[in-house]
């Protein structure tokens, strides 16, 4: 356990040198998206025949979905190239494993760090949502653990995958065929119900759709009836991902 903390500590030491840029993006990105699409596009919707989406303004509809999608993207970014670098390009993990640290410590530390990254970016996003007036209840704070879990639901399986890769060719493929389609079609910008039935089925099989609807209901201070199922799906993806990584990472690092 302390071993995993040491791995997190290493991350913090590196992050201490790069946090300003990361922090800027964490705030700037949601501000730009909410302003351009939430307010810009939202104003067109407000002038249309329905005025609202799902009974709320488009900005209020969009913000929690974007929050969840941001966690997904953060997890994707953190568990691909940086992990590959530490496995293979810089061999950081080999350096760690020459000390009392074990592969389990390395994995624990990486997951711990991912949680910290997800929580800090989600919190930054949350502050921006407050700024835009889309948070209507203290319950909305629960969005943060929900999207952290969503990030783990993507990050842990991707980490497990990365540990099996010798080249980085697979990462753009994940981006193109999973992350980007989900971002565009996974319920962030419009309700999943508007997709064709097959696409709806696919969307509901992924973690993103569940964390989007859950976050959306929490943002307006409610709780959707399927909340337990949503959390269970997210937890299942995260757990299976961590189990997979605890098989693939030792296989890769201990020869």
């Amino acid at each position: 356990m302390t071993g995993a903390l040491r791995v997190v500590e290493h991350h913090l030491m590196v992050y201490r040198r790069t946090w300003k840029g990361g922090m800027f993006v964490s705030f700037a990105s949601p501000i730009l998206f909410l302003a351009a699409i939430g307010i810009g596009l939202g104003s067109l919707i407000a002038r249309g025949p329905v005025h609202t989406v799902g009974g709320v303004s488009y900005l209020t509809f969009l913000a929690p979905g974007l929050l969840a999608a941001t966690a997904m993207q953060t997890a994707f970014v953190e568990t691909t190239y940086p992990v590959m670098a530490k496995i293979q390009w810089l061999r950081t993990y080999d350096g760690m494993l020459a000390t009392p640290l074990t592969v389990r410590d390395v994995l624990g530390g990486e997951i711990g760090w991912l949680v910290i990254r997800l929580a800090t970016t989600a919190f930054a996003f949350f502050l921006v949502m407050v700024l835009f007036g889309t948070v209507h209840s203290l319950v909305a704070l629960l969005m943060i653990p929900v999207v952290v879990l969503n990030g783990l639901a993507f990050g842990a399986p991707i980490f497990a995958f990365t540990a099996t890769q010798r080249k980085d060719k697979g990462f753009p493929t994940i981006g193109r065929f999973i992350i980007t389609p989900l971002f565009l079609l996974g319920g962030v910008f419009f309700p999943i119900a508007q997709l064709p039935p097959i696409a709806q089925g696919i969307a509901w099989a992924t973690p993103l759709a569940h964390s989007v609807v859950l976050s959306r209901s929490l943002a307006i201070g409610g709780m959707n009836p399927s909340a337990l199922i949503d959390v269970a799906v997210l937890a299942a993806y995260a757990t299976l991902g961590i189990i997979a990584a605890s098989i693939t990472l030792p296989r890769r690092l201990v020869r």
């Binding site: 590196v14 040198r17 080999d94 350096g95």
Partner: peptide, 15 residues
Amino acid sequence: RLGVVPQADTLDMEL
């Protein structure tokens, strides 16, 4: 209780 100097340096280029 060991010190290890591996064949390829595994120094942290970010630090």
